[in-house]
Structure formats: structure tokens, C-alpha cells
Design a protein around this nucleic acid. Structure first.
Length: 237
DNA sequence: TGCATTTGACCCGC
DNA sequence: GCGGGTCAAATGCA
């Protein structure tokens, strides 16, 4: 599977170390429910008001909700999702969806562990939903592929403007992908990078253009596509 | 009937 | 002890 052949973020440098602990020792994990500090990364997704968005944002993967909790100090409950293929393929990817208190149109999505399933996120390239990484609790080196260089990608994608679908243009107007957490790779001081419709171009699925993509870009493209798919679905609804 | 969601309880880390 | 994260039974839905 493209993009998943690589090792998921690991703290120890040993591929799958974090997840495999839980995976191969799954019984122990279930029995003890011992939590380990998994690598995580966060992205914020802004949606247009009135889109009727609730619950998990469709990032191209199939998520199954397994819990919801009211978080202290948070206005909205936090939803807990895991990969639908967890049982079948042992995919340990999980995500948490927290609606922003300040701006209900912003959803903060925290991903933990990467998909090890073979599920295609509705896109031929990329299998992760990673757009931005915060590696909030763990070392940054976990994220071999994170954070995706959105700016780089944006610049690259700029050359593909001609391929944009007109029908998608309107959708983009209300979307933003906001990075947070880690310092800006350029200056380390900049505020979160905001990718909006003005400076972010979504790739086309059918594009056969051989892109000199790297892993970061693949992740970023996958996420961008996922967000776009969500917007499209919301529009359909 | 099978799968997804809800929700209270349980467990762990701080 | 508290709060966050997960489990699992109950429930809903197609």
C-alpha cells in the first residue's frame, strides 16, 4: 500500500514499536488497558457555518465511534473514533474529534497511531490523514513524515490550478486546514499555518501527472482530499 | 441480522 | 483523587 509501507511514527525508532506493543500484546493491553503515550498529531479543520457538520469529519477512512466524553472546560464533548478495520486488520489508528469552544466551525482532530490497514481513503495516493503534526506528547522524530510540508505542497500544487474542478471551487471557499503545535519549519516562531482556499489547491484524483512527491506531500494530499470529500458530502446532505 | 452508535462504568496516568 | 481514554452492553438502524 502506497504510503503505508513506511513505518508509522515511532518513539523508539523501532518500527511499529508503539502500536505493536499494543498489537501483539493486544490481550494484555485489553486486559490491563494500559495506556501508552502514542505518537499523535493534530489538525484543525474549519468548515463553513451552516454545513450541518456534526461528528467525525470524513477524512477518507472509515472510523467507528467508540466513545464520547465531556471534557472539563470544553463546551462540546469529545468523540473517540477508531479504525473500522481494527479487528480485521489490526489497524490501531484512532482519532479524537473535539469541537472548538471558540469557534464551533473548527474541529480539532487528534490522530493517534497511523493506519496499518489497507483501506484506501478514497484516493489513489496516500493512505494517511496526516496534514499537520503536533507530536504533542512525543518526540517530533516520531513523525517521519510529519509534519507534511503544506507550504511546499501548496506551492507545488499551484502549478496544477488548471486541473481544478469548477464544481469544487465553491466548496473550497469554506475550508481551512490549520496547523498547530509544532513550530513552523521555517522559522519556528510562526503561528499555525492556515491553509485556506486562497492559498491551498486541492489535487485532482484523476491526475496522471507524475508528481515528484515525497511522503510528506502524499500525506498532505491525502488529507486535503479527505477534507474535500467531506465538504462534498456535506454539500450533498 | 449485522453493524454502528450511545452511554455508563472501568482503568490508567498524572 | 481527578480527568481522560477505553471497554462493552444496550440500543438503534438499515
Amino acid at each position: 500500500m502506497i504510503g503505508m509501507s513506511e513505518s508509522p511514527p515511532s518513539l523508539t525508532g523501532s518500527p511499529f514499536s508503539d502500536d505493536s506493543d499494543r498489537d501483539q500484546d493486544n490481550k494484555d493491553y485489553i486486559g490491563s488497558r494500559k495506556r501508552k503515550s502514542l505518537p499523535r498529531w493534530t489538525k484543525q479543520v474549519r468548515v463553513s457555518p451552516g454545513m450541518g457538520l456534526e461528528g467525525p469529519l470524513d477524512d477518507g477512512f472509515s472510523w467507528r465511534k467508540y466513545g464520547q466524553k465531556d471534557i472539563l472546560g470544553a463546551k462540546y464533548p469529545r468523540g473517540y473514533y477508531r479504525c473500522t478495520h481494527r479487528n480485521v486488520q489490526g489497524c490501531l489508528a484512532t482519532k479524537q474529534v473535539q469541537r472548538s469552544d471558540d469557534d464551533p466551525t473548527i474541529f480539532e482532530i487528534t490522530y493517534r497511531a497511523r493506519h496499518t490497514c489497507t483501506q484506501a481513503p478514497g484516493h489513489v495516493i496516500g493512505t494517511t490523514t496526516t496534514t499537520t503534526s503536533t507530536a504533542s506528547t512525543d518526540q517530533n522524530q516520531n513523525n517521519n513524515n510529519f509534519p507534511p510540508l503544506l507550504e511546499q505542497m501548496s506551492h507545488h500544487q499551484t502549478h496544477q490550478d488548471d486541473h481544478h474542478h469548477n464544481s469544487l471551487s465553491s466548496l473550497r471557499s469554506g475550508l481551512k486546514v490549520i496547523t498547530e503545535g509544532l513550530e513552523n519549519p521555517h522559522d519556528g516562531q510562526s503561528p499555525p499555518l492556515i491553509i485556506s482556499s486562497n492559498n491551498f489547491n486541492f489535487p485532482t484524483i484523476s491526475s496522471s501527472t507524475p508528481l515528484p512527491v515525497n511522503a510528506n506531500m502524499i500525506d498532505a494530499v491525502a488529507t486535503a482530499t479527505a477534507v474535500l470529500r467531506f465538504a462534498h458530502q456535506s454539500m450533498v446532505y
